[in-house]
């Protein structure tokens, strides 16, 4: 009888949070998509005359460097736009790979149950009991820095969450009447899983993906900062921030500005993920 008034207020605030999250992320996606065309970035282009110029400087070629330049005279904004492209692409690719692996394993475990479920979920337990960044560092160290390797590494470190969600949905759906009905009508396992069980996973998996993508982007930046992510020639945010570390005394902006851009994106993704989770599936909070 007494659901507090706050619940009502929260729902309304929830839609504001969802709008805010989507708006900021849209800005980043658009910037990542068209920015690199507007502000050309050429990794081999070095202009010593424009080295380490502070923000709001007019450069030797007459262009205006709103965020300043780096140690080889590259425009920081152009570099960051390219970095946004890499971060978002790596994030999406990782989620796609981790989601595919995780959902497949989760569905198999939840739908078939038995020893398969036992083995797969113990594997998940082991991996959860292992700090995921360490696993990522280990694999990345062996594979060497490259964009594709980062995606593989982060997918391996993140599939467990998806597997747990998919398994939960499969367990819940397996016993529902329409699944029983389809089985009675002679539908095969493959058909049952793809037509009945898989669709039930879509919404919770999307919510989890929103929550996870911020973590993935942060992890990519951390790996790149450590020199284990994208190669030094690829200007991801982590690489740019790492490069700026050597010039902290003369050029504070190289490390700080990309970090702000990164933090703001991750905050927005966090706000959006939390709001979606609160709205559509509060049970996922414990994952």
């Amino acid at each position: 009888m007494v659901a507090p008034v706050a619940a009502r207020r929260r729902t309304r605030a929830g839609s504001a949070r969802i709008r805010f999250g989507f708006a900021v992320i849209a800005v980043y996606v658009v910037a990542a998509a068209i920015g690199p065309w507007l502000f050309r970035y050429n990794p081999v282009d070095t202009r010593t005359a424009d080295r380490l110029k502070p923000p709001f400087t007019r450069l030797s070629d007459g262009s205006f460097a709103i965020f300043g330049t780096d140690q080889v005279g590259q425009d920081l904004l152009a570099q960051m736009l390219q970095g946004a492209r890499i971060s978002i692409a790596v994030g999406l690719a990782t989620l796609l790979l981790a989601g595919t692996i995780g959902v497949t394993i989760g569905l198999a475990a939840g739908y078939f149950g038995g020893w398969l479920d036992g083995v797969l979920m113990r594997l998940a337990d082991i991996q959860l009991a292992f700090p995921s960044i360490l696993l990522a560092i280990f694999i990345a160290a062996l594979l060497g820095p490259s964009v594709v390797n980062v995606v593989i590494v982060l997918a391996v470190a993140n599939w467990v969450t998806f597997a747990r969600v998919a398994r939960g949905q499969a367990l819940a759906t397996r016993r529902r009447e329409f699944v029983d009905a389809s089985r009675t009508l002679g539908a095969g396992t493959w058909r049952l899983v793809t037509r009945c069980v898989l669709p039930a996973c879509v919404a919770p998996v999307l919510v989890v993906a929103t929550v996870e993508i911020g973590h993935v982007i942060l992890a990519e930046a951390s790996l790149s900062f450590l020199g284990l992510g994208t190669p030094a020639s690829t200007p991801s945010w982590g690489v740019t921030i790492a490069n700026g570390r050597n010039y902290l005394a003369d050029a504070w902006w190289i490390s700080t500005i990309p970090g702000i851009a990164l933090a703001f994106l991750v905050i927005s993704l966090g706000v959006l993920g939390d709001a979606l989770r609160d709205r559509y599936d509060p049970r996922l909070r414990s994952l």
Partner: peptide, 12 residues
Amino acid sequence: EFATSGGVVTAV
């Protein structure tokens, strides 16, 4: 009075 999701209710 109680504030509920449906509005304010006078419980007593």
